Simulated assay, not measured.
Amino acid sequence: MSKLSEEDIEKKLLRFPDWEYHDNAIHAEFEFENFKDCFSAMSRIAFECEALNHHPNWNNVYNVLQITLSTHDEHGVTNKDFKLAEAIDAIVVPEEED
């Protein structure tokens, strides 16, 4: 999997409003109602990470989860990071109800 150009990353980020690009990685921060909800989301994300064989750098303090994605083998952001970001968004960002 090849490292994406900054232009390609910025284009892809248009579909990921909770994510931003800096320091050669994409980053997001999610706030939950409480620690239990945050930890529950982290557990569900962990299963997706294992399925994709791609693991984030993340930090959790009480109800806030900070996630950083980059592909270490490629020294930057690849499509693999966006695939995981999409899976994370499906877990932490609720679907809008009709």
Rank of each mutant, 00 (worst) to 15 (best):
F35G: 11
E10A: 10
S43N: 10
N34L: 08
E33W: 00
R15P: 00
A90K: 06
E95L: 15
N53G: 05
D73M: 03
A25M: 07
S40A: 03
C49R: 10
I67C: 00
I45E: 10
G76P: 05
N57Q: 09
N24P: 02
L69N: 13
T71L: 07
E86S: 02
I9H: 12
E86A: 06
A46M: 01
D23T: 12
K12S: 02
S5Q: 11
L14C: 09
E86N: 00
Y21S: 07
E10F: 07
K11Q: 09
N79C: 08
H22G: 11
F16R: 06
D18G: 08
N79G: 12
F47T: 03
L84N: 10
M42Q: 02
E10R: 02
D23G: 14
W19Y: 04
I26A: 15
Y62F: 08
N34Q: 09
T71H: 14
E10K: 10
E50N: 12
E97C: 14
K36Y: 03
D89K: 03
K83F: 10
N34T: 09
H27Q: 11
F82Q: 01
F47N: 00
E96A: 11
V61A: 01
I91G: 15
K83R: 12
E7I: 00
D8A: 15
E48I: 12
H54D: 14
C38G: 03
D23V: 12
I9K: 14
W58H: 11
A46I: 04
K80Y: 01
V92L: 11
N60M: 04
I91W: 01
R44L: 11
L52S: 12
I91L: 04
C49S: 12
F16K: 09
N57A: 14
L69P: 13
E29L: 14
K83M: 12
E31F: 06
D73Q: 05
H55F: 00
P17D: 10
N59S: 04
D23Q: 13
I26H: 14
F35L: 05
K3T: 02
K11W: 07
D23H: 06
W19N: 06
N34I: 11
K3E: 03
D18M: 09
A41I: 06
E97D: 09
A41W: 05
H27E: 14
A41L: 10
E7L: 00
I91D: 11
Y62R: 06
F32S: 12
E33G: 02
A28W: 12
H22L: 09
E74Y: 08
K3V: 02
F16L: 13
S70H: 13
L69H: 10
